[in-house]
Design a protein around this nucleic acid. Structure first.
Length: 871
RNA sequence: GCGGACGUGGCGGAAUUGGUAGACGCAAGGGACUUAAAAUCCCUCGGGCUUCGCCCGUGCGGGUUCGAUCCCCGCCGUCCGCACCA
C-alpha cells in the first residue's frame, strides 16, 4: 500500500488553528490544579526571530506540553523586551519612529513564533514599551523610592561617548561599552541608583538554596557579589607630614596577620588624602591627573605599569608608634573598593612585592610554609601567598596566619585612636549599587520632578503614567527628551511652582527584572495581585542563555526582594529552576577576498579531509571556518522560515533537540535536518500503515507471548522518556524514541496476520508513541492521532502511566567478568538470589575453563548488575 | 593572575555518578528493490592480531579497587567567567 508522505506545510497551520480555537494553552484560573510556570527569557524585538530563539522556546515548549499532559495548570507566556538602543539607532539611521519600528518588529516576530507551533498563552502577551507596562514599572519605582531602595547620588560613572549614555559596570566589557564598543570614559554625574547592596548578604546566602540552578551560574553570582571578611584599620598620620586637618588613614585588609610585613601605604588617586596632598604638590597633582587618564581610557589594564608616587605623608604603625611608613598614591588602588587605601605587605602579595622592588621599599617575610627555616626563609622575586606560620612578627611569631588574624583583630579592636577603636571587623562586597539612569529616549521615564525650592519630588501616583512624548527628533545625538520643547516643563507637585521632569529613563534591565511577575496578572491596574501572583511564582523552570547568568538574574533576584518589601508579592526568589541552554552554531565560509558567505551561497562537496566549499556564484573555492554562533556579521545564519518552508516546524524542533545536550551548542547541518525529517516520515509511515489493522481495536497492553514484547517496549520507553523530559535531557529522550520506533517497526509490519491481542497491544503502543513525540513534534502527533481515530486533540490528552509490571523482565542478562574483564553473559531469573547466581556462574563453560579446576578466590555479585569472578 | 568546567570512534554524543565503553543520530562503505534515480529496507563501521578467539583502547603518567570514562595525585590541552578587589 502506497502511503502519502506527510505534508507539514498543509498540516501544521491546520493544527495551530485547532489549538488556538480551543484556547488550549491559556493558563486557567482554576485554583484546584497544581500550577507549573515555565518561562523562556523573552526576546528583544530586533526584527526577526533567530534560530537560537527557536531552540530556546522549543525546550520550554516541550516542558510546557509535557507538564500540561501531566495534569498541571501551566503558565507559558511570551512577551517582548522592547525598550532599548537599537530602536533609537534605527530612528537615527532610517528616520523611523522607535515606537513604529518596535511594534512592527513585534508583529513580524510574533507571526514567526506562531509558525513554530509553540503552546504559548498569547492572551498574556505584552511589550515592556507598552504604556500599560511601564506605567506599573513607574509605580514600582515610586514604591521602591518610598521604601528607601532608590537613591540619587553623584558618582563616577562609565560614560559611553558614542551612545552618549551612562553604562553600569556590568555593561562595560574590557573597558568598552557593551553595545557601541567605544572606549568608556569616566565622568561625575548625579544618577539614580537601586540599592541592591542593601541585600548583598541575603543575595549571597540565598544562592545556597537555589539547588535547581546550574552550579556554574551560582558560582558566577557568588563571585560577582564578592564577599570578603577583613579588618578596617586606622593608621595615625605623623603630624608634621599630614596635610591640614588630616589625622588618620583608614585602610581595609583581608590580611591583618601580615601587619608586621607592612612597608608602605598606598591610596587611590581619587582618595581625599591624595587630593589634599596634591594641593601643595604640583608633581603629585600631575601624577594624579595621569592616573585618571589611564584609569578611564586604558583598554587593557593588565598592560599598564604599576606606578606610585610618594606623597611625603607618613603614618605610624598601630603596634609601634616609632615605626613610620610612607604613603604613596598608586595607580592600582581603586577608590570604589574598601576605603580606597591599602597597606602594602610585599612578602605576602605579588603586586605589593613588585611595587616595593620598584621603589626600593623593605621586604620582610612574615608568613612562611610550615617546617621552613625562619632564618633562611627569604622573599625576593616571588611573594608567598599561601597559609603558613608567622615569623618576624613579634607576638604573632609561631602562630598560624589564621590565628594571627584573630590576634591582631582582638588587640586593635580594644585599642583606641581619638576615642574610637583602631580597628573594626568589616565585611566587604564587590557588588555596587545599580545605577539605572540612562540618557536615552526609548526607555521607561523615571517618575521624578526636580523643583528648585522643594528639591527632588516624586510624581504623585495619580499623575502616572509619565508617558513618553511621541513628537521627538533624532537629528542630534544625546537625549531627545532633554531637547523636547515642552515635555520636561511641569509644575512642582509640592509647591506648584515651575519645575522640570527628570529626563533620564531607566536601564532596560529594569524592564526585564519583573516581567515574569507581570505575566501572572498582565492586565491588572497594579503591578501584580499578590494573591494571584504568589500562586504562580516562583517560575518553576526558567530557560535562557548563559550570557544572563549575572546581570539579569541578579537584578531579578533583587527586584523580587524589593517587591516583597513593598508588598507586591510574597517570596524571595523568582526562579526555582534555571536552565541555561546552548547556542545554535554553524560553520563559517569565507571567500579569498575576505567576504563572508552565507550557507545558501555555497555548495559543500566531499567528506572528511576532502571536504570543500565552493561559492555557487563564482565557482571559486572558499575556506570553511570554525563553528560560530550564528550572526549577521559572519553571515552563517539559517532562517527559521526557510527551514519551516522546506521541512516544517516539527523537523526543526526535533533536530534542534536531538544529538547535543541542551546546555551545549548544537551545530546546524543540512544533513542533520534531513535526518530529522526522515524520522518524521518514518513515524508517519509506521502509524498510517498500521492504522487499518488497529482501527477497530481498543488499546490494551499484552502481558504474555509475542504481543507482550510490543507492550514492554512501549512501557519502557514511556517510563524513560518521561524521566528524561523531567531532567531536560531532551537528546536522550529522543534517542529512546528512536529505539521505540525501531522496536515497533518489525511487529507492526505483520499486523495483517496478527490476532486481536496483538492488535490491541499494537494500538496501545502506537498511542504511547504518539504521546511521546507530542511534546517535541506536536503537529505530527495530532496528524497521527487523527489517523488512528483518536478522540480529541493530543495537546489536551493526559500523559499515560506506565505499567510497572511491564518495565521489568522476568529474565535478566548479567554480564560475567573474570578478573574484571567481561568474558560472557548469564541469563537467569530476575528474582534469583545471590547464591543461585553464584552457582549458575560457576557452572558456565567459560568460567570453568578460566578457573581450570581451581576454586575461585572470590565471586562478587552485584544484584541486577554484574558478576565478577576473581580467579 | 584567580575561579570554574571539559577532554570518549571520522563527527555530535550515550553510559542509571564505581559495574558490559561507544546507546541514539550524522557521515562513510557494501548489498536488496528499481530500466534508472529518488524514497525505502538489510548489513558493516575504535585500533591491532595468528579473527569461532585474543590483545590494546575514554588527553598523558602514576595510584586506590575484585572492577575506573567515573575516585585520588601529577602533567598536557581546550573553553568559559572574573580580573589592579587590598
Amino acid at each position: 500500500m502506497a502511503t502519502e508522505r506527510y505534508n507539514p506545510r498543509e498540516s501544521e497551520p491546520r493544527w495551530q488553528k485547532a489549538w488556538e480555537d480551543a484556547r488550549l494553552f491559556e493558563a486557567k484560573d482554576d485554583e484546584s490544579l497544581p500550577t507549573y510556570y515555565v518561562l523562556e527569557m523573552f526576546p528583544y524585538p530586533s526584527g526577526r526571530i533567530h534560530i537560537g530563539h527557536t531552540r530556546n522556546y522549543t525546550m520550554g515548549d516541550v516542558v510546557a506540553r509535557y507538564k500540561r499532559a501531566k495534569g498541571f495548570n501551566v503558565l507559558h507566556p511570551m512577551g517582548w523586551d522592547a525598550f532599548g538602543m537599537p530602536a533609537e539607532n534605527a530612528a537615527m539611521q532610517n528616520k523611523v519612529h522607535p515606537k513604529e519600528w518596535t511594534y512592527q518588529n513585534i508583529a513580524t516576530m510574533r507571526a514567526q513564533l506562531k509558525m513554530m507551533g509553540l503552546s504559548l498563552d498569547w492572551s498574556r502577551e505584552f511589550a515592556t514599551c507598552d504604556v500599560d507596562y511601564y506605567h506599573r514599572q513607574q509605580m514600582l519605582f515610586l514604591d521602591f523610592h518610598a521604601k528607601d531602595l532608590v537613591t540619587r547620588k553623584t558618582s563616577k560613572v562609565n560614560w559611553d561617548p558614542v551612545d552618549r549614555t551612562v553604562l553600569a559596570n556590568e555593561q562595560v566589557i574590557d573597558g568598552r561599552g557593551w553595545r557601541s564598543g567605544a572606549e568608556v570614559e569616566s565622568r561625575e554625574l548625579a544618577q539614580w541608583f537601586f540599592k541592591i547592596t542593601d541585600y548583598s548578604e541575603d543575595l549571597l546566602n540565598a544562592i545556597d538554596r537555589l539547588d535547581a540552578w546550574p552550579d556554574k551560574v551560582r558560582l558566577m553570582q557568588r563571585n560577582w557579589i564578592g564577599r570578603s571578611e577583613g579588618l578596617s584599620i586606622r593608621w595615625p598620620l605623623v603630624e608634621d607630614t599630614a596635610p591640614g586637618g588630616e589625622q588618620e588613614l583608614e585602610v581595609y585588609t583581608t590580611r591583618p596577620d601580615t601587619i608586621f610585613g607592612a612597608s608602605f601605604m598606598a591610596v587611590s588617586a581619587d582618595h581625599p588624602l591624595a587630593k589634599k596632598a596634591a594641593e601643595k604638590n604640583p608633581e603629585l597633582a600631575a601624577f594624579i591627573e595621569e592616573c585618571r587618564r589611564v584609569g578611564t581610557s586604558a583598554a587593557s589594564l593588565e598592560t599598564v605599569e604599576k606606578k606610585g608616587l610618594d606623597t611625603g605623608i607618613r603614618v605610624r604603625h598601630p603596634f609601634d608608634p616609632e615605626w613610620t611608613l610612607p604613603v604613596y598614591v598608586a595607580n592600582f588602588v581603586l577608590m570604589e573598593y574598601g576605603t580606597g587605601a591599602i597597606f602594602g605587605c610585599p612578602s605576602g602579595d605579588q603586586r605589593d612585592l613588585d611595587f616595593a622592588n620598584k621603589y626600593g621599599l623593605p621586604v620582610t617575610p612574615v608568613v612562611m610554609p610550615e617546617g621552613a627555616d625562619p632564618e633562611a626563609f627569604q622573599i625576593t622575586e616571588e611573594a608567598y601567598t599561601d597559609d603558613g606560620v608567622m615569623i618576624n612578627s613579634h607576638f604573632l611569631d609561631g602562630l598560624s596566619n589564621d590565628a594571627a588574624f584573630e590576634e591582631v583583630a582582638k588587640r586593635l579592636e580594644n585599642e583606641t585612636l581619638g576615642g574610637k577603636p583602631v580597628a573594626e571587623r568589616k565585611v566587604n562586597f564587590r557588588l555596587r549599587d545599580w545605577g539605572v539612569s540612562r540618557q536615552r529616549y526609548w526607555g521607561c521615564p523615571i517618575p521624578m520632578i526636580h523643583c528648585e525650592t522643594c528639591g527632588v519630588v516624586p510624581v504623585p501616583k495619580e499623575d502616572l503614567p509619565v508617558k513618553l512624548p511621541d513628537d521627538i527628533d533624532f537629528e542630534q545625538p544625546g537625549n531627545p527628551l532633554d531637547r523636547h520643547p515642552t515635555w520636561r516643563h511641569v509644575k512642582c507637585p509640592k509647591c506648584g511652582g515651575d519645575a522640570q521632569r527628570e529626563t533620564d529613563t531607566m536601564d532596560t534591565f529594569v524592564d526585564s527584572s519583573w516581567y515574569f511577575a507581570r505575566f501572572t496578572t498582565p492586565h491588572a491596574d497594579t503591578p501584580t495581585k499578590p494573591e494571584v501572583t504568589n500562586r504562580w511564582l516562583p517560575v518553576d523552570q526558567y530557560i535562557g542563555g548563559i550570557e544572563h547568568a549575572i546581570l539579569h538574574l541578579l537584578y531579578s533576584r533583587f527586584f523580587t526582594r524589593g517587591m516583597r518589601d513593598t508588598g507586591h508579592l510574597g517570596l524571595d526568589e523568582p526562579f526555582r529552576g534555571l536552565f541555561t541552554q546552548g547556542m545554535v552554531v554553524h560553520e563559517t565560509y569565507r571567500a579569498k577576498d575576505g567576504r563572508w558567505l552565507a550557507p545558501s551561497e555555497v555548495r559543500v562537496e566531499g567528506s572528511g579531509s576532502d571536504r570543500k566549499a565552493v561559492e555557487i556564484a563564482t565557482s571559486e573555492e572558499v575556506s570553511i571556518g570554525s563553528l560560530e554562533k550564528m550572526s549577521k556579521s559572519k553571515k552563517n545564519t539559517v532562517s527559521p522560515e526557510d527551514i519551516i518552508d522546506s521541512f516544517g516546524a516539527d523537523t526543526a524542533r526535533w533536530f534542534m533537540l536531538s544529538d547535543s545536550p541542551p546546555d551545549r551548542d548544537v551545530e546546524w547541518t543540512d544533513e542533520g535536518a534531513a535526518g530529522a525529517h526522515r524520522f518524521v516520515q518514518r513515524v508517519w509511515r509506521l502509524v498510517t500503515e498500521a492504522a487499518p489493522a488497529i482501527e477497530k481495536h481498543k488499546a490494551r497492553a499484552a502481558r504474555q507471548g509475542d504481543a507482550a514484547s510490543i507492550s514492554k517496549s512501549a512501557h519502557k520507553a514511556l517510563k524513560i522518556v518521561g524521566n528524561d523530559i523531567e531532567r531536560l535531557a531532551f537528546n536522550r529522550a529522543i534517542a529512546r524514541i528512536h529505539e521505540l520506533v525501531r522496536d515497533l517497526q518489525g511487529p507492526l509490519s505483520k499486523l495483517d496476520t496478527a490476532g486481536d491481542e496483538t492488535r490491541a497491544a499494537a494500538r496501545e503502543a502506537i498511542e504511547i508513541l504518539i504521546r511521546l513525540i507530542a511534546p517535541f513534534m506536536p503537529h505530527l502527533a495530532e496528524e497521527c492521532w487523527a489517523q488512528i481515530g483518536g478522540k480529541g486533540l493530543v495537546a489536551e490528552a493526559v500523559w499515560p502511566e506506565y505499567d510497572p509490571a511491564l518495565v521489568v523482565d522476568e529474565e535478566i542478562v548479567l554480564p560475567v567478568q573474570i578478573n574484571g574483564k567481561k568474558r560472557g553473559d548469564l541469563t537467569i531469573a530476575r528474582d534469583a538470589d545471590q547464591a543461585a547466581v553464584e552457582k549458575a556462574v560457576l557452572e558456565l563453560d567459560f568460567v570453568q575453563k578460566a578457573l581450570n579446576g581451581a576454586a575461585p578466590r572470590k565471586v562478587i555479585v552485584v544484584p541486577q548488575r554484574i558478576v565478577n569472578v576473581v580467579a
